[in-house]
Amino acid sequence: MADYAFPHRHLLGIEGLNRLDIETLLALGDRYVELNRSRVKHADVLAGRTLVNLFFENSTRTQGSFEIAGRRLGADVVTMPIATSSVKKGETLIDTAMTLNAMRPDLLVIRHGSSGAVKLLSRKVDGAVINAGDGTHEHPTQALLDALTIRRRVGDISGLRIAICGDILHSRVARSNVACLNLLGAEVRLIAPRTLTPPGAAEWGAEVFTDMRKGLDGCDVVMMLRLQQERMDGAYLPSAREFFHFYGLDAEKLDHAKPNAFVMHPGPMNRGVEIESGIADHKTRSLITEQVEMGVAVRMAVLETLAKNAPDIGAKN
């Protein structure tokens, strides 16, 4: 596996990757976990290369995670405060991309509120593009960090029963995770009320449940999703209270999963809406802070891998 050449220029989604692609990234991520836990958390594989963080949507943890990942690999990291600058002056998305491209970044980490926008941008720039979340489409590094977390704490993903619960309709994390966990051989379940289940979700290779207790039966891992009230331009639910009653993860519902089943959440959490605080902070069963740690490692793996494939921007012309 050490010699496997990752055959993609960009990381736009889990769709399009094969199992070996994913396992290669996870194996490298594993190595970076060790580096990140040592005293000198530094490697020089990206020395001299420029990483631009382009977040058209506000983000704290993903943006910070990519920044730290880039710096630990020795890259020059620049974060463009796009949400407050040129876009408001009417510059189009493509013009912004062309402008940044002229500054010759090697790696571009992009988050955008519209599905497909990151792909659109990837066609217009020379560097490698990493999708840090596009609308309700994909968030591939989140799926990779979740897989790394499960692999390290629970074991081989193949054969595990994993439930993804809550606001699946608006979740790019769910879409990437279903694809990733399916490729790695897990049995994936989706648990949500009908209004938050995407049409055709049953054709995604996952079993769909509306009853959370039935859905959690025998699960090794329970992945909760954030209720994305900001993307709901109509009433998908009668109230947060009712949602918590039927779909919020509390100790009683968790009892339906396997004993000692693990709990995950991509954050940020709405405590008391989709997850009870006692579960979120559980010392042995909650993997939520570990997910954040794995996020840095997996992003280092992605950056290093794509930088190897990136054209030598400096040598152009």
Binding site: S115, G116, G135, H137, R172, P198, P199, G200, A201
Partner: peptide, 18 residues
């Protein structure tokens, strides 16, 4: 309103409103 393409499994997969 605010939709992009035909509703269904394909739109859902692309993360688009149908």
């Amino acid at each position: 309103k605010n939709t992009v393409m035909n509703a269904g499994a394909f739109a859902a997969r692309l993360g688009l409103r149908g």
